[in-house]
């Protein structure tokens, strides 16, 4: 069971239209290292965690990732707000427009649609947690790439914040993996 809270985990208020960044940022929505992949990865893997620590951690981090999906979606929608058809064409978003108008659609920054093949569920807690640890590092790296591509403080603030969350999740997964190794799972 989930309950929605009518608030963002961290505030977003993007004032400047930036279709180029919207096009790039979408990779953290529907790309292989994006937030949707993270949420589904953890929420799927939790069913075969061997004890309550794993069940709790994957549920709670998976839930937080859903809040990050919402943050990225909010950023993209605000970056695209009030864009004219001419601006959409100029930014190379006309292919997106043809299929989705201004709707959000989970793809990576190259337009490749989201697929569950982006994550694994092996049923082996060591293998799954090792994947989760790698996923957090890859997401951190992608956030850093995106940070390098903008100087808009309205975009940088949330991206720096989301990047830091990957750092924390990485540490928690690492701690759990180490414990599971010791326990011989």
């Amino acid at each position: 069971m989930w309950a929605y809270e009518k608030r963002l985990q961290y505030p977003i208020n993007i004032k400047s239209k930036d279709l180029r960044m919207a096009k790039l940022l979408v990779t953290q929505y529907g790309g292989s290292n994006g937030e949707l992949a993270a949420a589904l990865r953890y929420l799927n893997q939790r069913y075969t965690m061997p004890d309550d620590k794993g069940r709790a951690l994957l549920t709670d981090i998976g839930t937080e990732e859903l809040a990050h999906v919402e943050m990225i979606g909010t950023m993209i929608s605000q970056l695209m707000a009030n864009a004219s058809l001419e601006e959409i064409k100029r930014a190379g978003l006309d292919a997106h427009y043809a299929e989705h108008k201004k709707g959000l659609y989970p793809t990576d920054s190259n337009g490749v649609p989201f697929t569950v093949a982006y994550f694994a569920t092996t049923g082996d807690p060591i293998a799954d947690l090792t994947e989760d640890i790698a996923a957090e590092q890859k997401a951190r790296a992608v956030y850093e790439n995106l940070i390098n591509l903008t100087n808009d403080p309205d975009i940088l603030g949330p991206l720096l914040w989301l990047r830091q969350r990957e750092v924390v999740h990485f540490n928690r997964f690492n701690e759990l993996l180490e414990e599971y190794r010791k326990k011989g799972y």
């Binding site: 961290y10 850093e144 940070i147 720096l160 914040w161 989301l162 990047r163 830091q164 969350r165 750092v167 924390v168 540490n171």
Partner: peptide
């Protein structure tokens, strides 16, 4: 909250 990390010894700026 501003840093996105509750833990002093885990915070890593970019």
């Amino acid at each position: 909250y501003l840093k996105g990390n509750a833990f002093k010894n885990e915070y890593i700026p970019y």
